[in-house]
Design a protein around this nucleic acid. Sequence first.
DNA 1: TAAGATTGAAGGCTCAATCTTA
DNA 2: TAAGATTGAGCCTTCAATCTTA
Lengths: 162, 162
Amino acid sequence: MPVEASLSTEEQDFLRALSRVVVLIPRAFDSDLGREVEMSSSEFFTLMHLSEAPGGRLRMGELAAATALTLGRVTQVVTRLEAEGLVERRPCATDRRGHDTLLTAAGAERLAGARSHQIASVRRRIFDRLDGLDGLDLAACTEVLSRIGTDAPTPSPQTGRA
Amino acid sequence: MPVEASLSTEEQDFLRALSRVVVLIPRAFDSDLGREVEMSSSEFFTLMHLSEAPGGRLRMGELAAATALTLGRVTQVVTRLEAEGLVERRPCATDRRGHDTLLTAAGAERLAGARSHQIASVRRRIFDRLDGLDGLDLAACTEVLSRIGTDAPTPSPQTGRA
DNA sequence: TAAGATTGAAGGCTCAATCTTA
DNA sequence: TAAGATTGAGCCTTCAATCTTA
């Protein structure tokens, strides 16, 4: 319900900058990765999170949490990656409702080939733009970004995850 | 071309936080606005930028620059808004290739009705999450976000680094 | 030739409905 | 009943092709 409310100038500026970034960044990443390694950023990050998981193996829900994608979207991405032989679906040993996604050797290789392109893209689109920024505190920015977006009391590192 | 490259831990953390936000924020805004005022965030921001322009009037290309949307997408959004009577298309007086988009009275009214809902959404999804954050420097974050995303030498104040 | 804008096809993402197992 | 996952319909967005006027 709309209560009497407004944003400060500082808040408005932040909102505008953020609104711009959430449009520009996905376009930039998808464009760069698509052109150079024929992969969407969703696919790239899915492979990346799998490669970092113990055994290269994650449940669908864990993959959704890691990528911030919806479960439905994860299913679609995994289906596509599986069709390319980059991941495999395995029944979950402890819960027969669940499925594990497992990074294949081909998937690991594909990720390795994509990584340097992605790093170059990230440098060009992000960190190169911050060169010479006076008093840059990247960690402080990271903290801010880590907190926002959710509705619930932020399931940030540490804090109550129930 | 992939050169020898990598990201520092700080940079990786920033990238992860940013990647999460660019997925979460559009979903949150579109969900809130869609439920409460049946409008997408693209439509909302389009109306907002029009309302801030002199005469409530902007060229398609200016609208694209303001919203960071592509020209093709702006055409579609404006078409939809026009069908609802919230904006009007007018031939541009000085360049017959161009079209102005003009905010109507109905559009201004609709925007006014949506604004408080949007502010509530922004508070809930963003600024409430930052309450109690020690040493928060919102302006510094804004500066960082304002710089990233583009490919070209950043149309920011100062330097043009090739 | 190039710039402003539009269009249609294709792909990304969300959401609600559904199926299976706990 | 609820949780994990999948599916299909539909919207959002991009991209390349196209049309008109500079």
